[in-house]
């Protein structure tokens, strides 16, 4: 059986759908396969945002710690989603924890490597931005809906 290369896996991921065929190979130079067991953390709040993750399998909980209470989950993501946007924004630190709820298989993309490639190849950088900005807009929109407390008691 022929093994799928990282470039093929990246090209097949929903986040990179319809990306210029030359880019997945370029991006794969920054990529590696990673695996997290149940309860493993992909990263912790405050750590340097050294990578972002293309989830291939499993679910990840995004959590915020609060003193005197359990951590709160504010979002779960799964297959086809991405984890990590902080690698794009200085000072490149995670602003929440990410924990594997199930066995998670993902592609980790090295942030410094990817930022360097985007600086060198602005076309790649723009293509990546066209994918990250809608994702950011969607998450902002979902956060608004969560803040509206739609299911609370009508006033």
């Amino acid at each position: 059986m022929q093994q799928q290369g990282l470039g093929d896996i990246i090209a097949a991921h929903r986040f990179f759908k319809d990306l210029d065929p030359s880019f997945p190979e370029l991006v794969s130079g920054c990529a590696k396969n990673v695996r997290f067991g149940v309860g493993d953390y992909l990263f912790h709040e405050g750590d340097g945002a050294a990578a972002f993750y293309l989830i291939r399998h499993g679910r990840v909980s995004l959590e915020i710690k609060a003193p005197g209470r359990q951590s709160m989950q504010f979002m779960t993501v799964g297959e086809g989603d991405i984890v990590g946007i902080s690698w794009l924004v200085p000072p490149y630190c995670w602003s929440y924890d990410a924990k594997a709820l199930e066995l998670v298989r993902a592609i980790a993309l090295d942030a410094t490597c990817l930022r360097d490639k985007c600086e060198t190849d602005n076309h790649l950088g723009y293509e990546l931005m066209k994918r990250f900005v809608p994702e950011l807009a969607l998450r902002l929109h979902c956060t608004r809906l969560q803040l509206l407390d739609l299911y609370g008691k009508p006033t």
Binding site: S71, Q73, K99, C142
Partner: peptide, 23 residues
């Protein structure tokens, strides 16, 4: 089932219900 927020004992989805539609 998706809830808007939960502590870490919840094993289901967290986020707005519309997030469930693509999958």
């Amino acid at each position: 089932i998706s809830v808007d927020h939960a502590d870490t004992s919840w094993r289901g989805h967290v986020g707005v219900v519309t997030n469930l539609i693509p999958s």
